[in-house]
């Protein structure tokens, strides 16, 4: 069973629909017991950084996720804001503390000739050899929609980059955590393939 964590933010239906299409047994839940019992955890997210962390804490999910993902090593997929909240801090509408699982800071795109948000399909460049990118070709296109991006402290956790006024973190791979700035659930065939790869993924911690 895959648990899509419901904390009142984001495109939960789309994520569930995408996993269902590829034949996964998936539940959308905020029940700690269901999350503890899940074989894989998905943290989607749309909205603002501070609100996201606040909602996770208000639902009592911070500790549960910490236990399941950090201590027990359950395979984890963060999507968009669900990737950003892994950071130490986020700078959207003031400085907020994130989950702090992946050291770094989430910053707004800067650049005078850059339109923000970064909206649309853009190519990613995988930076690591991983079964998560199997079958995607060398520069697959994914759908992005965000104004902030994750600047990580340790570049070795960057699994893929994308270019928008310079390279930024498109995906993170760290132990049992895989996270994408883009939306695989909105990226048609490439996205579904990536989600299938996540289902098959056995992280080496």
């Amino acid at each position: 069973m895959i648990a899509v964590v419901d904390y009142g933010m984001g495109n939960l239906h789309s994520v569930r629909n995408a996993f269902e299409l590829i034949g996964a047994d998936v539940t959308v839940t905020r029940d700690p017991e269901e999350i503890r019992a899940a074989e894989r955890i998905v943290l989607p997210g749309v909205g603002a950084f501070g609100e996201c962390v606040k909602n996770l804490e208000a639902a009592g999910l911070r500790e549960v996720l910490q236990e399941v993902v950090l201590e027990r090593g359950t395979p984890f997929l963060g999507i968009c804001l669900g990737m950003q909240v892994l950071a130490t801090t986020g700078e959207e509408f003031g400085v907020h503390r994130g989950l702090g699982w992946v050291p770094g800071v989430v910053r707004r795109f800067q650049g005078t000739d850059l339109r923000v948000p970064h909206v649309g399909w853009n190519e990613i460049e995988p930076r690591v050899e991983s079964p998560l990118f199997r079958g995607l070709g060398h520069a697959p296109c994914f759908y992005f929609v965000h104004s902030y991006h994750f600047v990580v402290d340790d570049p070795r956790v960057v699994a893929a980059t994308c270019d928008y006024g310079g390279p930024f973190t498109a995906a993170i791979l760290y132990r049992n955590m895989f996270a994408t700035q883009f939306h695989p659930e909105k990226s048609q065939e490439a996205g579904l393939r990536l989600l299938e790869n996540f289902l098959d993924w056995e992280p080496v911690c």
Binding site: V46, A48, E51, V145
Partner: peptide
């Protein structure tokens, strides 16, 4: 924008 993010 504040509640759901500018992106939507």
């Amino acid at each position: 924008a504040r509640l759901f993010g500018s992106q939507c």
